[in-house]
Nucleic acid binder design. Structure first.
Lengths: 227, 227
DNA sequence: CCTTTGAATTGAACGCGTTCAAATACGAAG
DNA sequence: CTTCGTATTTGAACGCGTTCAATTCAAAGG
C-alpha cells in the first residue's frame, strides 16, 4: 500500500477515479450533461456501470468533483490576483475572472450543479453542511483580499464582509451560468457595475452620517445568525 | 360543450384535472414529494398512470399548478393589504405574510419547485419565458403597493422598483423554503430587518448626497437590461 | 340509428439513475 | 504457497418519471 489520496487506497484506484472523471467531463462537454448516460461514462472509462458508483456517489457528484478540482487550481490565480495590487476592486475582479475562466469550457455543465445546489440539504449543495470546509476555504480568500487592501472597512462590518463578498460572487456565478447573452457579456457588464457599487458602498459606509443605515444593515446580518 | 376552462374541454375533464391535483397535493403533504409516485397520484385520483400526464406535463407541473392556484387566491389578501394602510412597510409585510400563509402547509413541497426553478430555461421556472405573464402579474402588485404609499421614490428609480421588490420577495421565499429554524423564525427575523433596511434605503435615496450612489445603483440596474 | 371525429383513457414499455448480491483481484500474514 | 480479509469490479435488477400506440367514449352530423 502506497497511495495516500483522499478516498482511494492504491494508486491504481486513484488513477481509475481520475479516468472516470476525465472521460465524464469530456462527454458532458461534447454532448451535454443530460444527454450523457452513466452507462456512457462507465463505458468511456472502460469499466462496468457499477464501478462509476464505486468512485462517485452520483452523477451530480461528478460535477462536484469537477468543481472541487477547479477550486484546487484556483489557488495560484487567486494568490496572484491578491499579490499584484492593493486595489480592492482589482483584487476582486481578479478572483472573479479567474473563476469564470476556469468554468468557461464547462458552463453548460454547471446548470446541473444548480439543480441540486439550491437545496442546502443536498450533500452537494455549496450551502450545505457537508461542503462547509470548501466553503470556508473560499470565503478565506476574500478575507485575504480585504487584508491590506486600499479600502478600510468599519470594525463592525469587518467580520461579515468576507462571507458577504463570497455570496456576492456566488450570485455572479449563478447569473453567469444562466446568462444566455453572447459570451456572457451581460454578466460582464453586471460585474463591472456591481463591483463599482460594492466598493463605493464600502468606502462611504464609514462616513459618519451612514451610521443609522449601517446599523440597520448590521441588524440584517445578525438576523442570519443561528436559528 | 359547456366548460370554458384554461385547457379543458368538458366540465368533467376539468373536474378530473382538479381531482388529480387535489389528491396529489394531499399525498405530497402527507408523505412528501419525492416519496410520492406518479403512479400513486394517478391511483389516488382513480385513473391510469398515463391520465395524469394527459392533464399535467410532468410531476413538477403539479407543483406549478399548486403555485398558480395560490396566486389566484392571493389577490384578495393582497388587495386588502394595500387598501388597509398607506405605510409601505406594512403593505409589503402584508403581501409577504399572505404568501407565507398560503404556502405554510406545503413548505416541503416547494423545495421541488426550487430544483427546476433555478434554471430559467426550464418551462416551469419563475424566471423563464413561459411564466412571463404570471411574473408580470406578481410584479404589478408591487407597483400598486408603491402607488399612493407614504414613501415617495426618486423618478429614476421608480420604474425599476416593482421588479426589485418582487425579486426581494422571491429571495425571502427562497430563504423561507430552506429555512430549518422552528416555525421559520429565522426568515421572520430577516424579513423584519430587511424590510426596515429596504424602506429606509428608499427614504434616504432621494437625499442630495446620495446622488452618486444612486447613479451607480442605476447603472447596475441598466446592466441587467437586454443582452 | 349509424358514422365520424376528436377528446379522454389505458397500461405496457422505455430510459436512465441507482443499488446490490455475487464474483474477482490482490496484498498481507502464516 | 495457501489463506484470508479487504478493495475493486461486475452486470443484472429495481424504481420511477415519462412516452406512446391502441382503445374507449361521447357528442355532432347525416
Amino acid at each position: 500500500m502506497t497511495g495516500t489520496s483522499e478516498r482511494g487506497q492504491t494508486a491504481k484506484a486513484e488513477e481509475t477515479r481520475n479516468r472516470i472523471l476525465d472521460g465524464a467531463l469530456r462527454l458532458f462537454r461534447e454532448r451535454g450533461f443530460e444527454e450523457t448516460t452513466m452507462r456512457d461514462v462507465a463505458a468511456e472509462a472502460g469499466v462496468a456501470t457499477g464501478a462509476a458508483y464505486y468512485y462517485y456517489r452520483s452523477k451530480q457528484d461528478l460535477v462536484m468533483a469537477f468543481y472541487l478540482r477547479t477550486d484546487e487550481q484556483a489557488r495560484e490565480a487567486f494568490t496572484e490576483a491578491i499579490r499584484s495590487t492593493k486595489d480592492l476592486k482589482k483584487r476582486l475582479r481578479g478572483i472573479i475572472d479567474a473563476k469564470f475562466e476556469q468554468f468557461a469550457e464547462h458552463r453548460g455543465l454547471l446548470t446541473a450543479l444548480l439543480k441540486t445546489g439550491v437545496d442546502p440539504r443536498d450533500p452537494l449543495s455549496p450551502f450545505g453542511e457537508e461542503t462547509r470546509q470548501v466553503r470556508e476555504d473560499s470565503i478565506a480568500w476574500y478575507a485575504r483580499a480585504l487584508e491590506g487592501s486600499d479600502v478600510s472597512v468599519p470594525k463592525d462590518l469587518a467580520p461579515h464582509l468576507p462571507r458577504l463578498l463570497w455570496m456576492y460572487h456566488m450570485g455572479l456565478i449563478y447569473h453567469w451560468i444562466v446568462d444566455t447573452s453572447p459570451g456572457q457579456r451581460r454578466t460582464g457588464r453586471i460585474t463591472d457595475a456591481t463591483l463599482d457599487l460594492v466598493v463605493q458602498l464600502l468606502k462611504v459606509s464609514s462616513l459618519p452620517f451612514m451610521g443609522p443605515l449601517r446599523k440597520r444593515a448590521l441588524k440584517v446580518l445578525r438576523a442570519f445568525e443561528d436559528d
